[in-house]
């Protein structure tokens, strides 16, 4: 009776496998040939592209820029997102489901449109700059396009909704009674938060932060639209290397490096959470 269910799985599985293996093997193979530009590859296997990425300051600084900006986004997203998730998870008013729905709806609006709004908001004669100048907070307009600051802000819009929703789920699994117990024993509110809520949500925080970091490392849309060709993170550089310079092997090598970074981060995530859980078992 049940033996035949698995037959259903084969068509989608074979299609997914064919697309996965086909696409990934072809481009990975291409990265091991010399790049002769204008879309042509050399005929002998070589590691020279990888050597180039590892030794050329241009590529190394792009990699470092991508890591640095992604780390900044993680920090800012955490600072804004974690308290928000906590407040939402502990809220008892009628506003809670409404705010949650608003959060989901805004996260579902395509990032392209959010970036468009950001660019307008930060335009030289735009509302934000006029008020900043009027308040005397800056003496020249804050610009978004082509600056690292702008790319970080743009990436935050890509990640914050997702991050809040993830941590909302994490905080909801922590029983409220634990906080009440600590409060009854005389701990002030901030201390309850710091000594009870934060430690219990730490595994969730770490995995969510690494998910956000990974998303940022591979994020193209915000970085390309706001970076305006001046902030070359790895994904933007890959697109330009292939589409503008027609250097397929070099683009493939950079793509392989990006893929490896993602896999490494996932591995770290699994190991870190495993260790945390193991440590907790010992303490308990």
């Amino acid at each position: 009776m049940t033996a035949r269910w698995h037959l259903l799985m084969w068509p989608p599985l074979l299609l997914s496998l064919a697309l996965l293996v086909g696409s990934q093997s072809i481009f990975l193979r291409g990265s091991f040939f010399a790049d002769l530009r204008v879309g042509r590859l050399g005929s002998e296997l070589t590691l020279q592209n990888y050597w180039r990425v590892a030794s050329d300051g241009f590529y190394l600084s792009a990699l470092w820029l991508t890591v640095r900006l992604s780390a900044l986004v993680v920090v800012f997203t955490f600072v804004l997102g974690y308290p928000t998730a906590y407040i939402l998870a502990r809220m008892r008013s009628v506003w809670a489901p409404l705010l949650l729905a608003l959060l989901v709806a805004t996260s579902f609006v395509t990032i392209v449109i959010k970036v468009l709004g950001l660019v307008i908001l930060f335009s030289p004669g735009g509302l934000l700059n006029v008020s900043l100048l009027w308040l005397g907070l800056t003496d020249q307009p804050v610009s978004l396009r082509g600056t690292e600051f702008g790319v970080v802000v743009g990436l935050m819009y890509f990640t914050i909704g997702f991050f809040v929703l993830l941590l909302y789920g994490v905080v909801r699994t922590i029983p409220r009674s634990l906080e009440q117990a600590a409060q009854l024993l005389g701990a002030p509110r901030w201390r309850v938060f710091w000594r009870v809520v934060v430690p219990l949500s730490l595994p969730g925080i770490i995995t969510s932060a690494l998910v956000v970091f990974n998303l940022c490392m591979g994020a193209f849309t915000s970085a390309a639209l706001i970076g305006a060709g001046r902030i070359l993170t790895l994904p933007v550089l890959i697109q330009r290397t292939v589409m503008l310079d027609a250097r397929y092997a070099m683009g493939a090598t950079l793509a392989a490096v990006l893929l490896l970074c993602g896999l490494a981060i996932n591995l770290i995530s699994i190991l870190a959470v495993g260790r945390l859980k193991a440590a907790r078992r010992v303490v308990a």
Binding site: S23, Q24, A219, I238, L259
Partner: peptide, 8 residues
Amino acid sequence: PAVVVGVS
């Protein structure tokens, strides 16, 4: 990453 999907 989507960029890698595009290239490949």
